[in-house]
Nucleic acid binder design. Structure first.
Lengths: 213, 213
DNA sequence: TCACGGCAGATTATCGATAATCAATAGTCT
DNA sequence: AGACTATTGATTATCGATAATCTGCCGTGA
């Protein structure tokens, strides 16, 4: 995974993702192939392939002969993501519980502490990173690669960021909302972990989509 | 969707998928770019792009400079798919129930009848198509595009086919297993529909993976 | 014999150029 | 004026060729 840093397509892909996440490319913006070709001094082929990957990752939309546009994270898609994510993470919690070990608990605890630190520093981006990683650790621990793929496809980072921005939540509260999950994992009750994870996601769904109705 | 039949990449993609599904390309087989280039009389670019799409669709695996191979549908991946699919379809059933109308019920009934016909004719492939379409109709009816994407990523057709082959199930029984779902939909109880769909998937999981332990 | 280095052959990744297609605008006819 | 067609500029899709990389095989030397 780290051995392929020489493949141009990957570098281009990461550059574009970075620009989408940091706002250089805004939703709806066109991503023009030749423009990147000129800017980066590469050929069109790797740029095209990068864009193709990004389409599969749902970062951009594209149609034949019409090019790629940064996908808007619509309120609709945001609210549609929550129920799917809630069910997948519920399953992840149930599957992961029998597999928890001290190492995982330590890692989760470290992410939680990092979230608290980020919250104290008003560091939205930092909170986002560690929040996403906390959940990812659990999904990985479930040991089901199909589940991991499906979950990864939801682009949690993007939506978590939007959630954070839309809801004027207290960052510390967001961080601490992960505590019940960690506690449940320590208890080792799969169904409880699943319920906590599902409730965790659904509570955010309510907060973010609730104020729009 | 049907207007882009002139884009070569799409045609190549469908050709390869067809060959994977009908067994021309077997799991583990290499899919060599230049070989297709010569055979189809096209350039390398569209072949590469087709393969890139297929990788995103998990039909093939590929690594830089090492090419693409048809992804083996391992028993492990098969059994990992079931729980994920079960939860997603449970959610789909719950969401779809309030949206049920006569048209949908008619379509579902038509697919069910088609499954029965296929079963009578010992037509595994036909059963597979209509089985997949039955489920797809419900997931579409849920009206959640994120859910639809996540579900589509599971490549139901592939796994249903493998399931059918591995389990020496009576095809008619497979067809009729969809009846409780249709009944529940007619009753209009979301939770019941969800439960039926989940149970439907999980029963197949037991049948297919059960005999391997 | 066996480990090692390095040369083919095969294959993928990238390039630069051309063809195909699209979107917008100008021009023509009624 | 309004509707319709032709042209043009911009962009994507495809091509054919070259560079980069991998894999297996062969000879060499201990």
């Amino acid at each position: 995974m780290t051995l392929e840093r020489t493949v141009m397509r990957e570098q281009i892909k990461e550059l574009i993702i970075q620009r989408i996440l940091d706002g250089t490319y805004k939703p709806g913006d066109r991503v023009v192939e030749l423009q990147l070709v000129n800017e980066l001094g590469v050929s069109q082929a790797p740029v095209r392939e990068a864009l193709r990957d990004l389409k599969a990752m749902r970062f951009v939309d594209s149609e034949p002969y019409r090019g790629a546009r940064v996908r808007a994270v619509t309120a609709e898609e945001l609210s549609e993501t929550y129920p799917v994510r809630a069910r997948l993470e519920q399953l992840a919690g149930e599957l992961a519980t029998p597999c928890v070990d001290d190492k995982l608990l330590r890692q989760l605890d470290a992410e939680l502490q990092a979230m608290r630190t980020a919250a104290r520093d008003r560091d939205q981006h930092g909170l986002l990173i560690h929040d996403a990683r906390f959940h990812e650790l659990i999904v990985e621990a479930a040991g089901n690669s199909v589940l991991l793929d499906a979950w990864s496809g939801l682009r949690i980072e993007v939506f978590t960021l939007v959630s954070l921005i839309k809801s004027n939540l207290d960052l510390a509260a967001v961080a601490n909302a992960h505590l019940p999950i960690l506690d449940a994992l320590r208890q080792g009750d799969p169904d409880l972990v699943g319920k906590e994870m599902r409730a965790h996601i659904e509570s955010f769904a309510d907060l973010v989509t609730g104020d729009q109705r």
